[in-house]
Amino acid sequence: MDGEKMFQSYRIIDDVGGLSIYESVDFIFINDSLEAYFKEVKGTVHEFIHELINYPNFYEEYYNDTPKSREYLELAKEAIYREDCSKDELMEFICDGNSSHEEKLFILKALQGQVTEDDIVRLVKHFDSGFLIQNDYLVKELFSLLGKYRNEEVYQLFLDYFSEAVGQDSKVDELITAYFDNYYQ
């Protein structure tokens, strides 16, 4: 990377939900595109802040749990996954055991519009109804993604899940019902 692309600090979300600053030497850079970032130079330190959260009072709003700041931060994290990872990397991350629950949700959002039929089959095999019943945090986002595809594997997953978990979450029930209603159209 050229000198402008190297920077000294990077704001990132840690596991406890706080914003932290990390030195760039702690990371391996896989993408040097910084188009979505605001650059600020403080002496010899180059800071990059994603454009979605680069507004006055963001940090104050974030720590005061203001919905706008939380929403923008989630959109920024989703954009970072989409921009910095290939579809194959996202598929690998979502199917490995190393990604946190929160990361899996952002990965599913980042995968929207990128998956192929083979990816859908892989997701259905990986996230069977038994897994989803025990890990219901993923269901809405996964079913939102899968619901756009009309194939036997998705149909069977929705049927299996619905037969075991109907009534547990009205939003999920609505997604499944809409899928079945539109399946043959």
Rank of each mutant, 00 (worst) to 15 (best):
F131Y: 15
S99Y: 01
F93P: 09
E103C: 00
S100R: 07
G113F: 10
V121C: 10
G113Q: 06
L132A: 07
E102C: 01
Y137A: 13
F131L: 12
L145Y: 04
S100A: 07
M91L: 12
S100T: 15
I94Q: 03
G147K: 12
I120R: 09
V124I: 02
Q112G: 05
D128R: 03
F127R: 02
L105F: 00
E117Y: 04
D118G: 11
D128S: 05
D136F: 09
Q114S: 11
Y137L: 09
K104H: 00
R122G: 02
I133S: 15
C95D: 04
L123T: 14
S100M: 05
L132Q: 12
E92I: 05
K109W: 03
E103P: 02
D118N: 15
S99V: 03
R122A: 13
D118F: 14
E102M: 01
E103Q: 11
L123K: 08
V121F: 10
K125F: 11
V115I: 15
G97L: 15
E92V: 09
S144T: 15
S144I: 12
H101G: 11
K125A: 06
V121K: 13
L108Y: 03
L108K: 03
H101K: 08
C95W: 02
D136K: 12
I120Y: 10
E92S: 15
F131H: 15
K125C: 13
L138H: 07
F93E: 13
G97C: 14
L142A: 14
F127S: 01
F131C: 10
L132C: 11
K104F: 00
F131I: 08
S100D: 08
V124D: 01
F93T: 08
K125I: 06
L146C: 14
C95G: 00
L146G: 15
F143E: 04
T116P: 05
S144N: 15
L138P: 04
I107C: 03
F127E: 01
K140P: 01
N135G: 02
S144W: 12
D136S: 13
F127H: 00
G130M: 04
N98W: 06
K104E: 04
V115L: 04
S129M: 05
S100H: 10
E102G: 02
L105C: 05
V139P: 04
L105W: 01
Q134W: 08
E141L: 05
K109E: 07
D119Q: 10
G147C: 13
L111T: 12
L123D: 09
D96Q: 07
K140Y: 02
H126E: 00
G130P: 00
F143P: 12
L108R: 02
L142W: 10
V115S: 06
V124C: 00
L111K: 04
F106P: 01
C95Y: 05
M91Y: 11
A110C: 01
L132P: 06
Y137Q: 10
E141H: 08
